[in-house]
Amino acid sequence: MNEFDYIIIGAGASGLLLADAMANDSFFDQKKILLLDKVLKNSNDRTWCFWEKSNGQFEEIIHKRWNSIHFQGEDVAKRTKIDPYSYKMIRGIDFYDHYLKKVKATSNITFVQDTVVGISETEDQVAVKAVNNTYTGKYIFNSLFDYKMATQQTKYPVLQQHFIGWVIKVNKPIFNTEEVTYMDFSIPQKGNTRFMYVLPYSNDTALIEYTLFSEKLLPTPEYEEAIEDYILQRFQCQEYEIIEREFGSIPMTAYDFREHHTNRIRYIGTAGGWAKPSTGYTFMSTANKVPKLIA
């Protein structure tokens, strides 16, 4: 019952897109496929932003788009239209709803909520031990990422692109809904690369994010104090409601993650080295309840 031809661990961007690709490829029609994730993917725990010309494959789930960007430094400010490109945002919940609906409609793909605790490989199969069951598969696609995958070696440096942000709502129209502040370097750099990022959802609601490139994370209060200062200095705003909080960390390295592949296990997503160094690329968030984190 728990034997499959293919097991995909993780129903995030890479896992769901892979499952969708398999569902649309006749080669897999007679194969049993398991999509495994520790959560049901029924909350807005993640957001993706990306550049694109004209319309693309995600058009029906685009939540917001912008056609103008703003760069800022101590001595320079640049605002420009980005035609023919748009900067687009997809909410995690919209992505999950769209692709899980398609995957669940495919008779040979099974989606299961369970938490992976171990993986063991033999010559003929891979056993995926989870909290509730053990699942076996001939081939595994694994999106579970651990920084130790990259830091166990010394040949290549490993930096983190890490950030904390708040989605805030104010009681007056202070945001330009047509323009993303993509990178504002006018803030103190403190020995590494730091910038603020402003993603306006409406004229009174926006994501304000503090992003750094460095080897180690900061204490949470240091990120949040920087955000508070920026909101006050940039927008002259002292009163606002934090409706979402976020934290993210993306590995920045030339290390080749393919070294972790085996005969029967392939790593995908960030675990496969597919992450891109771009603000807003991915984050996890939750409304109000979140301990200061994502997404």
Score class of each variant (00 low, 15 high):
Lys289Gln: 08
Thr136Asp: 13
Asp25Asn: 15
Thr110Lys: 12
Asp29Tyr: 12
Tyr85Gln: 03
Val131Ile: 12
Ile187Tyr: 04
Gln113Arg: 14
Tyr223Arg: 05
Gly10Tyr: 09
Thr279Asn: 10
Asp20Gln: 14
Arg91Cys: 01
Asp75Leu: 14
Glu215Leu: 02
Pro219His: 10
Lys41Asp: 03
Ala19Ser: 14
Val167Gln: 13
Gly137Gln: 06
Thr151Pro: 05
Ile33Gln: 04
Leu212Gly: 01
Leu199Cys: 08
Leu218Phe: 11
Lys81Ser: 13
Asn203Tyr: 05
Ile250Val: 13
Thr193Gly: 00
Gly73Val: 02
Glu52Ile: 04
Glu121Pro: 09
Gly92Phe: 06
Ile9Thr: 08
Trp48Met: 07
Pro291Trp: 03
Tyr156Phe: 12
Gly269Glu: 07
Ile109Trp: 02
Glu123Tyr: 11
Gln153His: 08
Ile243Gly: 01
Tyr6Arg: 11
Arg79Gly: 12
Pro291Asp: 07
Trp166Val: 00
Glu222Arg: 00
Asn24Lys: 15
Ser214Glu: 03
Tyr210Trp: 02
Thr80Lys: 13
Leu217Val: 02
Leu35Pro: 01
Val170Cys: 09
Glu215His: 10
Ile250Asn: 00
Gln152Gly: 06
Glu3Trp: 03
Phe141Pro: 05
Gln189His: 08
Ile109Gln: 03
Ile227Thr: 03
Tyr156Trp: 05
Ser26Met: 06
Tyr223Asn: 03
His98Cys: 14
Ser278Arg: 06
Ile33Gly: 09
Val290Lys: 13
Glu60Phe: 04
Gly73Trp: 13
Asn132Trp: 00
His70Lys: 11
Glu239Gln: 13
Thr286Glu: 07
Tyr267Ala: 10
Ile82Met: 02
Val158Cys: 12
Thr220Tyr: 09
Glu178Ala: 11
Phe213Tyr: 14
Phe71Pro: 04
Tyr197Gln: 01
Thr80Asn: 07
Val76Thr: 10
Trp166Pro: 00
Tyr85Pro: 00
Glu121Arg: 12
Lys41Ala: 05
Leu35Asn: 01
Ala21Leu: 07
Leu207Lys: 01
Ile265Trp: 08
Thr279Glu: 00
Asn108Arg: 11
Lys292Gly: 06
Tyr139Val: 15
Phe257Leu: 15
Leu16Phe: 05
Lys216Gly: 05
Val128Trp: 07
Arg91Pro: 00
Ala11Trp: 02
Gly12Arg: 10
Ala19Thr: 07
Glu60Lys: 15
Trp48Tyr: 13
Gln152Val: 12
Gly92Gln: 07
Ile174Ala: 06
Leu40Asp: 10
